[in-house]
């Protein structure tokens, strides 16, 4: 129900520049992902939206209006470490935002019940956080954010503590919850797969700077810098400067490399990692190393030679920008 807009926002902590000249707009009802390596400024941006930090310069607009104090902003947050209240039961944790906002008791109970049901935690509401598993705690923390009707939800890597399989389930569920709630969600993650799978729009951060904003497929298909190109996709994009694939710096995604086995080929296969549905090859060509992603489990062995060709390339200029027109 709200858009969030940053206009030239800067924030430093001492000499550390946490956020540098950030400008972006999160559209109403969008699932917006902030993605970047650790310490790239993602959490600081969330804290700026919450009002827990004040920008050194620039403006933050919520719904087109300048942002107010912390309690009046009407945004709900799931903290990275969840920050449940350990001395309260799960039920009291979830009730907390409504009680503090003086909602009548007649509205609180049904609201808590419906959120608990949606997150499948009705049976653990009487327990304290200390008695819950990691996954259950995460659900309680999300329920505490969902229980009221805020303008936007903010989530700081809330599912990073779960193991891989649970994380996959959780992110599908988050996407569903966001769609059902029909609210803006700003989501921080350092996991490129997670970001790509849930986001409508995502922003990639590098040392406090937003380097590119777009839909996940835009960012994947047309990365503006080698940095963005290599953050998205696994194995990361190959970057060649030897001229074998064109002038300047050329990026080739592993799945865009075609490997043709040939005794006179310029590339030497140095590694083969069969991963079931696909196989990752490591190849050395001249001074450079390439990784190629092949479908299925082709019969290749390390030590043999091959020819490399690219079906699609990403040409970058010498100073690290995408060549115009590419």
């Amino acid at each position: 129900m709200a858009s969030i807009e940053f206009r030239n926002v800067c924030k430093s902590f001492g000499t550390v520049k946490a956020v540098v000249d950030a400008s972006f707009k999160v559209e109403d009802n969008a699932f917006f992902c902030l993605f970047g390596p650790p310490l790239s400024g993602k959490t600081t941006i969330l804290r700026l939206i919450l009002g827990l930090e004040t920008p050194d310069s620039g403006e933050i607009l919520i719904d087109g209006k300048p942002a107010l104090g912390v309690a009046e902003r009407n945004v709900a947050m799931v903290f990275q470490n969840l920050a449940l209240f350990p001395h309260m039961t799960a039920r009291d944790n979830i009730r907390f935002p409504l009680v503090e906002r003086r909602q009548p008791e007649a509205q609180i109970a049904p609201r808590v019940a419906s959120v608990a049901e949606k997150l499948h935690i009705t049976h653990i509401l009487h327990k304290h956080p200390g008695q819950l598993s990691g996954g259950e705690r995460q659900r309680v923390a999300i329920a505490r954010a969902l229980v009221r009707d805020p303008a936007a939800y903010l989530m700081d890597d809330p599912i990073s503590a779960l193991d891989a399989r649970l994380r996959e389930e959780a992110r599908v569920e988050l996407k569903r919850i966001q769609r059902e709630a029909g609210r803006t969600l700003v989501y921080v993650t350092h996991d490129q797969e997670e970001a790509m799978s849930v986001a409508d729009q995502m922003a990639v951060l590098d040392q406090g700077r937003i380097v590119q904003i777009g839909t996940p497929s835009e960012l994947y298909d047309r990365p503006q810098t080698p940095y963005v190109a290599r953050l998205l996709g696994s194995p990361p994009m190959n970057l060649s400067t030897s001229g074998a694939f064109g002038p300047g710096q050329v990026g080739i995604r592993p799945e865009d490399l075609t490997v043709t086995q040939s005794d006179t080929g310029a590339a030497l296969i140095t590694g083969v990692e069969p991963l079931g549905g696909y196989t990752v090859l490591t190849l050395a060509q001249g001074p450079e190393t390439f990784r190629a992603l092949l479908r299925g489990q082709p019969e290749v062995s390390p030590g043999t030679r091959a020819t490399l060709s690219a079906t699609k390339t990403h040409p970058f200029t010498a100073d690290g920008h995408r060549q115009t027109g590419a």
Partner: peptide, 24 residues
């Protein structure tokens, strides 16, 4: 973060202290 969570959820500083910090 525990106190900040309470702030975000609508507590005043004093409420944070009495409702969350002291009981903890």
């Amino acid at each position: 973060e525990i106190e900040e969570a309470a702030l975000v959820e609508g507590c005043t500083r004093w409420r944070v202290f009495t409702r969350v910090t002291l009981p903890m």
